[in-house]
């Protein structure tokens, strides 16, 4: 088990956002977490990255308890998040955004930057442009590439399809699948349940802070409950 979340509770003031969540991600897996707006998906990722404190429960990464680690320590452990809404360093150039992705790792990241340009050629064209001036899809590419610069052991993706045109959504999901095939372990959080479960090995359904279902991606796609609640079928 690469990531093992057991009994995690998270509160925002008096709001109980995560209620005793148990969840596992194995090495090399693509695990999807689906659920409606406000179910607590982003809160779970914030808790995993350490920018939100868990009130109780434990998070283990490669067997090590990371529940009390600071965000930068978790990055050093290899947990990288592509946050909701991309969160680029808008006024900095695309290339500087990528360079900062390798901040914790140190060393000369030039080879990695070239690798990212090979995967996302459009970014090479725009390398000197302020990241904030790129289109939504391109910004999402920068956000993913920035996280990959750190050589993540576990990649957390928060709503990568949010706000993108349908054509681009397909492109981003293809890219995610490509990453999995290259061996990256991915924990994908999505409102777009169909697209996420279709490429996921396993999936979890989160409802008002609680995991209500978990199964393989295929089985969840076929389940009546998911169909009704999330796929509009």
């Amino acid at each position: 088990m690469l990531l093992e979340i057991s009994g995690i509770n998270t509160h925002y003031g008096r709001i109980h956002a995560l209620k005793s969540v148990d969840l596992v991600v194995n090495e090399g897996e693509l695990v999807a977490l689906v659920g409606a707006n406000g179910a607590g998906k982003t809160t779970l990722l914030r808790t995993l990255s350490g920018v939100q404190n868990a009130t109780s429960g434990t998070i283990k990464f490669e067997g090590v308890d990371i529940t009390r680690m600071t965000p930068h320590q978790r990055v050093a452990e290899g947990i990288l998040q592509v946050p909701e809404g991309r969160q680029l360093f808008g006024p900095l150039s695309v290339e500087d955004n990528l360079r900062l992705g390798a901040y914790r790792r140190g060393g000369k990241p030039n080879d990695d930057i070239e690798r990212m340009y090979a995967s996302f050629p459009i970014l090479k064209q725009k390398r000197h442009q302020p990241a904030g001036t790129l289109s939504g899809g391109q910004q999402q590419m920068v956000a993913i590439a920035r996280a990959l610069m750190a050589h993540p052991r576990l990649l957390l993706l928060d709503e990568p399809s949010m706000g993108l045109a349908p054509l681009l959504v397909g492109e981003i999901f293809n890219a995610v699948q490509g990453l999995k095939q290259q061996g990256t372990t991915i924990f994908l959080v999505e409102q777009n349940a169909y697209a996420a479960l279709a490429i996921a090995d396993r999936g979890y359904v989160l409802e008002t802070g609680e995991v209500t279902l978990h199964d393989t991606g295929e089985a969840l796609l076929a389940s009546d409950r998911v169909k009704q609640a999330y796929l509009g079928l």
Partner: peptide
């Protein structure tokens, strides 16, 4: 640049390990 990045987006800076 990490200092600048922190001023532009504190959350993102934390998430890249600053």
């Amino acid at each position: 640049k990490a200092m600048l990045a922190t001023s532009y987006n504190r959350l993102a800076a934390q998430l890249v390990g600053v």
